[in-house]
């Protein structure tokens, strides 16, 4: 089985990973809920819960709604704030996860993005910064920076100046052209992009005749969004030179391979963790057989193979 590790290995922005599988931010906490279920060191890495400067409770409930082959969430960046993340969560995470972790950073102002990014950049356990300029569930933050090329460029440029570690910018699909935003953040110095964040959606409660979510709208994720995500990964990977981390509705080893063929260097898995807490373990274990089936010797060799 020693060979299996090599077959799955990829390198993301200069950091070697045993495999491309990354539980997505907001679906994996700080890892320790899952560490009770399996050895999470088998993951490529994971992206921890989005961090802001101040503690945030997030939105009122209901925050979750069922959708066809997916779900809506409007959690609203609940997190204990960067001080508590560094003081309490990262040490607890370190006890169960020894690889470099991806630190997901969100914010409501340029200053906040700069401060939180530089604080987490200084942490030994952090391998990459994933800059979330695409949260659809907070007002005046997150997505506001990621839906306009010039503001995306300015926040990435500012954060680029203060962080030493690889900077991956998480992009919103809720834009006219995700390719234009991707090119703008590449020009601003991003080391990589990750996409897609959730698609803005809503449901209405038939009995109450009101929006089902307290926040009215929420982010749609789950298997249903996979084709949309794959298309955007394909388009972005064809337009930028920096690595692309693909995500959106990935639920199987086959989906992972499709994402990589489209041009993803690594693949994040989100909503699927919530319905099957062992999803990432299962996918990593399934990959070698699925690779054999399609004649793939190494995952690194297929990145972007479907591009023209």
């Amino acid at each position: 089985m020693g060979e299996v590790t090599n077959k799955l290995a990829v390198s993301l922005c200069g950091i070697d990973m045993d495999n491309p599988i990354i539980p997505a931010s907001g679906t994996f906490g700080y890892g320790y809920e899952f560490a009770d279920l399996y050895d999470i060191n088998m993951l490529g890495t994971f992206s921890f819960k989005g961090t802001t400067r101040q503690p945030r409770f997030g939105n009122a409930t209901p925050r979750i709604a069922e959708c066809p082959s997916g779900m809506l969430n409007a959690v609203g960046l609940q997190n204990p704030g960067v001080d508590a993340v560094i003081a309490h969560e990262l040490p607890k995470m370190r006890a169960v996860f020894t690889k470099p972790v991806m630190a997901n950073v969100s914010g409501f102002s340029l200053d906040e993005y700069i401060e939180v990014s530089s604080r987490l950049d200084a942490e030994d356990s952090v391998g990459w910064i994933e800059l979330n300029i695409s949260c659809p569930n907070v007002h005046g933050g997150g997505m506001a920076f990621g839906t306009c090329a010039s503001s995306a460029e300015s926040v990435v440029r500012a954060v680029r100046d203060v962080v030493k570690k690889p900077l991956i910018v998480k992009l919103s699909p809720n834009v006219t052209s995700i390719v234009e935003i991707a090119k703008a953040v590449e020009a601003a110095g991003a080391d990589g992009v990750s996409l897609i964040n959730t698609l803005l959606g809503m449901r209405i409660d038939l009995r109450r005749r009101k929006p089902l979510l307290a926040n009215v709208t929420g982010g749609y994720s789950g298997a249903a969004v996979f084709p949309v995500a794959l298309r955007m990964v394909y388009q972005v990977a064809g337009a930028v030179k920096i690595p692309v981390v693909g995500m959106g509705g990935v639920s199987s080893a086959e989906d992972v391979i499709e994402m990589m063929l489209a041009g993803a260097t690594a693949v994040e898995i989100g909503a699927e963790n919530l319905r099957n807490p062992w999803a990432c373990r299962d996918i990593i274990q399934a990959l070698p057989d699925v690779m054999d089936k399609y004649g793939i010797d190494s995952l690194a060799s297929i990145i972007g193979a479907a591009q023209p």
Partner: peptide, 22 residues
């Protein structure tokens, strides 16, 4: 009772405030 995403503490879908924190 609350609408839940995961049911095991990962997604923060069913948070509430208490006198001892969220």
């Amino acid at each position: 009772e609350e609408r839940m995403g995961c049911g095991f503490g990962a997604c923060m879908g069913c948070s509430c405030k208490t006198l001892y924190g969220n």
